[in-house]
């Protein structure tokens, strides 16, 4: 793996099956993962300790993943890569995610292996 071993990854997901699974998969690959289950908690965690990459679910209670992404892109740490994970698969949803500044967009149901490859790839390309 050449995607910055030990990199800090923030995972925001209100479905605990998915957040545990993603955290386990990324943890096994050597990343340091923090999970939260709301958009507000994600934004607080991002401000408190900016990660090297954030994986955000789009539909969360309170602040959505899109809202959090927008805040990140307006913040001082606006270049942190963000991968959106969503069941919303229409072109318009994907377009919106990228228009707001998502680095990548993964549609649920997803392949955990593919998610890991994407995370590794993004981190390898990030300066």
């Amino acid at each position: 793996m050449n995607g910055r071993p030990g990199a800090r990854i923030l995972v925001a997901e209100d479905d605990h099956d998915i957040s545990d699974l993603v955290a386990f998969k990324l943890g096994q690959a050597g990343y340091e993962v923090r999970t939260v289950d709301t958009g507000s908690a994600a934004w607080e965690a991002f401000q408190a300790a900016p990660p090297h990459l954030a994986v955000l679910d789009v539909m969360m209670p309170g602040l959505s993943g899109i809202d959090v992404l927008r805040k990140i892109r307006e913040s001082a740490r606006s270049t942190v890569p963000v991968l959106l994970l969503s069941a919303r698969s229409r072109d318009a949803d994907v377009d919106l995610g990228f228009a707001i500044g998502a680095t990548d967009y993964v549609i649920k149901p997803f392949s955990p292996r593919e998610l890991l490859h994407r995370v590794t790839g993004i981190l390898a390309r990030t300066p």
Binding site: D17, K108, P109, F110, S111, P112, R113
Partner: peptide, 13 residues
């Protein structure tokens, strides 16, 4: 629980 997970993941797992 497995049926629930099958709606969330795909691939070999």
């Amino acid at each position: 629980a497995i049926v629930g997970l099958l709606g969330k993941i795909r691939g070999a797992p």
